[in-house]
């Protein structure tokens, strides 16, 4: 009897999934993985090569199986860094450890190249934004030796450090995303003001919120909850001129992207190599250039009241020669603002 049950059940399971697969329509997008899935068109390129990738992407109940795998790894095998993320309460914390020495050296080299070759007449500053693991107990996780890292950067980068590590806490970050909440930049702006010589203004903001936010880390943990994404705006911010190298005209907050696969793209439309934000309703003539990653997309809007023009350069998407065609270095304030993620993957810098 047992033999029959095992044999028949096995065959039924195999056939059920096969039939289910054949009957179901292709799913175009995975919400929890935040990526496009391979569809039948992909098979037209090379069926033999691409078949397995297509089948794994379109497998029935895929999301449930992905969750089951996470449960197995994290809760049964006790692997607290499943999918290379740690969990603390509802916070999903990407594992940044280890950062290769070569990557740090490359980062230093790239910044120094820029400073010595193009910014001799400016007074450049650099600011490193810690990741969430900085705030966790060392016993529970493997984390980067931040003190050593900061020392290494301070000794080698030919610019002045703006240290914001002590200003931040875990609650300043989104639970499901690597980025800082926009509100958290308010205290950072105070520190920037001290270094760039602008005095704080009393600015009234209207806070808008999107309650369905799930950040980029949410895909790595089953059952992650939605959270609120807030952004601060006012008339001055809404009336600036935003010019992207790629998309031409833009807005500070692209609200239509709130419901896209990455809601964080609401800030200055997400990844963009070169953006100029011009504020013509301001008397100050100060200009700022930020060499940056995605974190500065939510920082830049809050700096609008202090600068006539803010230029954002993402050296991961544009090289120096191309940048120089669009940017004339004069006496602007210069800030290199990078998160730990870029330090870990600094070979992306062009």
């Amino acid at each position: 009897m047992k033999e029959k049950i095992i044999s028949v059940s096995f065959v039924i399971i195999l056939f059920s999934f096969s039939l289910f697969f054949l009957c179901k329509e292709d799913t175009l997008f995975s919400d929890i993985e935040r990526r496009k899935l391979k569809t039948k068109e992909y098979l037209q390129e090379d069926v033999v090569e691409n078949l397995e990738e297509y089948l794994t992407d379109q497998f029935p109940l895929r999301n449930n199986f992905l969750s089951l795998n996470s449960i197995w790894n994290r809760y049964i095998l006790g692997n607290n860094e499943d999918n290379l993320v740690y969990l603390k309460e509802d916070y999903i914390i990407e594992k940044m450890y280890p950062i290769e020495k070569e990557s740090i050296n490359h980062f230093i080299k790239k910044i120094n190249e820029m400073i010595t070759e193009d910014l001799q007449n400016n007074e450049p500053y650099y600011m490193i934004i810690p990741d969430k693991s900085y705030f966790l107990n060392e016993k529970d996780i493997l984390k980067v030796n931040y003190e050593e890292l900061k020392k290494e950067l301070k000794e080698n980068i030919k610019g002045k450090e703006i240290d914001i590590f002590d200003l931040l806490e875990l609650e300043d970050y989104y639970k499901t995303d690597i980025h800082l909440k926009q509100n958290s930049y308010l205290k950072i702006i105070e520190k920037l003001g001290e270094n760039f010589n602008f005095s704080q203004k009393k600015i009234e903001y209207k806070e808008k919120s999107f309650k369905e936010f799930k950040g980029s880390s949410a895909a790595k943990v089953p059952f992650s909850k939605k959270e609120e994404l807030n952004y601060l705006t006012n008339e001055e911010i809404e009336n600036v001129k935003v010019t992207h190298l790629e998309y031409k005209e833009g807005k500070v907050y692209e609200e239509s992207l709130l419901t896209s696969f990455d809601s964080y793209n609401v800030f200055l439309r997400g990844p963009s190599s070169f953006i100029e934000i011009e504020n013509n309703n301001i008397e100050e003539e100060k200009e700022l250039v930020i060499f940056r990653d995605s974190f500065s997309s939510s920082l830049a809007p809050l700096l609008i009241p202090y600068y006539k023009k803010i230029t954002l350069v993402d050296l991961r998407y544009i090289n120096k020669e191309e940048m120089k065609k669009h940017l004339e270095i004069k006496n602007q304030d210069i800030l290199f603002a990078y998160s730990i993620n870029v330090l870990k993957n600094s070979f992306l810098l062009k």
């Binding site: 047992k2 895929r62 199986f65 197995w72």
Partner: peptide
């Protein structure tokens, strides 16, 4: 124990699928 061993096989098979997909 017989029932348990059959369930054990089922669980392993489902976990295998989940792992292959992941």
């Amino acid at each position: 124990i017989e029932i348990g061993s059959m369930l054990y096989l089922l669980i392993i098979f489902l976990l295998v699928i989940s792992s292959i997909l992941s």
